[in-house]
């Protein structure tokens, strides 16, 4: 066990866990931030996607000991009132079905748009290919990303 001081969604958080604990489980079990989802545990499905310094990262494969001082953002901290342009676009296109993968999809999409404000279809495919949606909402996700890109 070791103590870690994490910067999560703009707040300082202290946790006492083993160093190998993936950030996913620190968020979900210790900080009650359950918007970040467990899907596969091997960084193949993208349900656990969060931002480290604004970049999309799979939290299920990131040990808490590797995070250090870096800023962590989860779906809960993406915007104050759920009004990030990507979240608004998701509502506009009524993207979700079951909804389980969508936090991860949104975190990947926001990271993409922050680096590439007007991605092409192929760039969207590349950035989003790590996020599985078992319900098959991909066409709507792509439309929502384009809407969000155009709204900036």
């Amino acid at each position: 066990m070791a103590t870690y001081n994490l910067k999560v969604n703009g707040k300082d958080q202290q946790v006492d866990v083993s160093p190998s604990t993936p950030l996913l489980w620190v968020l979900r079990d210790h900080l009650q931030l359950v918007g970040t989802k467990f899907g596969c545990g091997i960084a193949q499905c993208g349900a656990c996607t969060i931002h480290i310094e604004g970049i999309a990262v799979r939290s299920c494969q990131l040990p808490v000991s590797a995070v250090g001082e870096q800023k962590i953002t989860t779906i809960e901290g993406l915007s104050e009132n759920g009004d990030h342009p990507v979240q608004k676009a998701w509502i506009e296109h009524d993207v979700p079905q079951c909804g389980y993968c969508q936090a991860g999809q949104i975190m990947s999409a926001t990271s993409l748009l922050s680096q590439n404000p007007n991605p092409s279809d192929i760039e969207i495919d590349q950035a989003m290919n790590g996020n599985i949606c078992r319900c098959g909402t991909y066409t709507r996700i792509k439309k929502a990303i384009k809407t969000a890109a155009n709204s900036k």
């Binding site: 918007g35 989802k37 779906i75 809960e76 998701w90 909804g99 936090a103 949104i106």
Partner: peptide, 17 residues
């Protein structure tokens, strides 16, 4: 629109897990 849409895109707890 999906009545759960806002809760989903803001990561509210809603699943058994």
């Amino acid at each position: 629109k999906n009545v759960a849409g806002t809760a989903i895109v803001t990561g509210k707890p809603m699943f058994g897990i």
